[in-house]
C-alpha cells in the first residue's frame, strides 16, 4: 500500500502526483469493497427499489393533488368543474360555431370523450416534462429511484381522469346512450393508456431535465397533437378522399387509438372500430411503456446535476 500519510491527506493542488495517488485511492477502495457513490443500479435492482417505493409514489401523488387545490376556495370541486368547463368551451367552438360534427351521430358524447381522454395524455406529458426539473431540490436532498417522480405525476393525472370519467358517464347517459356490458372495456382501455402515458412521461422527463427550453416548447407540440388526433372531428369522415397512407397514419397515432377505444366502449352509436385498434393500443403501451422506462433509467445518475 502506498504510504498512508499520502493516501489520507493529499496536499492542496497536489494532483501533480496524480497517477500514483489515483491508483492508490482506487486500489484502497477496491481492497475494502467500497462501491462508487451514486452509481446507477442495474435494471432489475432498480425495478425492485422502485417497487419498494410504491407507497411513496401513491402518497406523493395524493399530496400533490391535495396541494394543487389547497388555496382555491372551492378546493377539490375544481377537479369536476375543470373538465366540465373544458367540455362546454369545446362544444361551443366546434359543435355550434365551426360545425365540425359531420358524420357523427352523438356529437356531444363523441367530443367530450375525446377531450377527456386526450387531456389525460396531454397533462401527463406536461407534468412529466417538469417532473424532474421542478423537483431538483428534492432530488438533491433524498435518495430514491428518480422514476418515482414521472410515475407519480402520471398517477396524479390518472386520479383526475377517474373523476372526469364520472362526469363523462353522466354526460354520455344524458345524451341518451344506453349502459351496456361494453362499458367494461373502458377499464383495459384506460389501463393501456396509463402505461403509455407513464412511458411517455418518463421520456419527456429525461428530455426536460436536460433541455430547459422543453417547458416552453411542449405546449405547441401538444396542441399540434391535439389537432391531428380526431378529438373534435371524425378521422374516418375527414380522410374519406385522402390517400390511404394519410388516413392510416392519423388512425395509428396513439392518442387517436386510445380515444377510439374509449368511444367504442362508452358510446353505443359510435361506428364499429376494427380489431387492430386494440392491437395498436397494446403495442403502443408496450413499446412506449417499456422503452420509456429503460431510457429514463439510463440517465438515472445524472438527474441531480440539473
Amino acid at each position: 500500500m502506498a504510504n498512508s500519510a499520502h493516501a489520507d491527506t493529499l496536499p492542496p493542488g497536489g494532483h501533480a502526483a496524480d497517477d500514483e495517488g489515483e491508483l492508490a485511492l482506487k486500489d484502497l477502495a477496491a481492497r475494502y469493497g467500497l462501491s462508487v457513490s451514486g452509481a446507477r443500479p442495474g435494471l432489475v435492482p432498480y425495478t425492485r427499489q422502485l417497487w419498494q417505493r410504491r407507497h411513496f409514489i401513491v402518497a406523493f401523488a395524493n399530496a400533490k393533488t391535495r396541494a394543487a387545490y389547497a388555496t382555491a376556495q372551492l378546493g377539490q370541486l375544481w377537479q369536476i368543474l375543470t373538465p366540465l368547463f373544458n367540455a362546454a368551451i369545446y362544444y361551443l367552438v366546434f359543435g355550434l360555431m365551426l360545425k365540425s360534427d359531420k358524420g357523427v351521430h352523438n356529437y356531444i358524447a363523441f367530443l367530450v370523450t375525446g377531450i377527456f381522454i386526450f387531456t389525460f395524455t396531454q397533462s401527463a406529458v406536461l407534468a412529466g416534462t417538469r417532473s424532474i426539473s421542478d423537483q431538483l431540490p428534492l432530488i438533491r436532498a433524498l435518495h430514491f429511484p428518480r422514476a418515482c417522480l414521472p410515475i407519480s405525476f402520471t398517477v396524479v393525472q390518472l386520479q383526475q381522469l377517474l373523476i372526469s370519467m364520472l362526469v363523462l358517464c353522466g354526460i354520455v347517459l344524458g345524451t341518451g346512450e344506453p349502459v351496456t356490458l361494453k362499458w367494461l372495456l373502458i377499464i383495459p382501455a384506460l389501463a393501456l393508456q396509463f402505461v403509455f402515458n407513464t412511458g411517455l412521461s418518463m421520456i419527456v422527463a429525461r428530455i426536460g431535465a436536460q433541455v430547459t427550453d422543453m417547458k416552453q416548447l411542449m405546449p405547441f407540440l401538444l396542441r399540434t397533437w391535439l389537432y391531428v388526433s380526431g378529438v373534435f372531428y371524425s378521422i374516418s369522415v375527414f380522410t374519406r378522399k385522402a390517400p390511404e397512407a394519410v388516413r392510416w397514419m392519423l388512425e395509428a397515432n396513439p392518442a387517436a387509438v386510445y380515444i377510439e377505444l374509449a368511444r367504442d366502449a362508452l358510446v353505443e352509436s359510435h361506428h364499429k372500430i376494427p380489431m387492430h385498434t386494440w392491437a395498436l393500443g397494446v403495442g403502443w403501451a408496450l413499446v412506449i411503456g417499456i422503452g420509456g422506462y429503460v431510457w429514463f433509467w439510463q440517465a438515472e445518475e445524472k438527474y441531480g446535476r440539473g
Binding site: Y32, L34, V36, S37, G38, I139, R140, H143
Partner: peptide, 18 residues
C-alpha cells in the same frame, strides 16, 4: 457532501463509499 451522498454526480473523479 452532495457528491459524496451520490445526489450530485461529480463532473470528474470518483467517490467510493461503504
Amino acid at each position: 457532501l452532495r457528491c459524496i451522498a451520490g445526489l450530485l454526480p461529480p463532473t470528474q473523479g470518483k467517490i467510493y463509499t461503504d
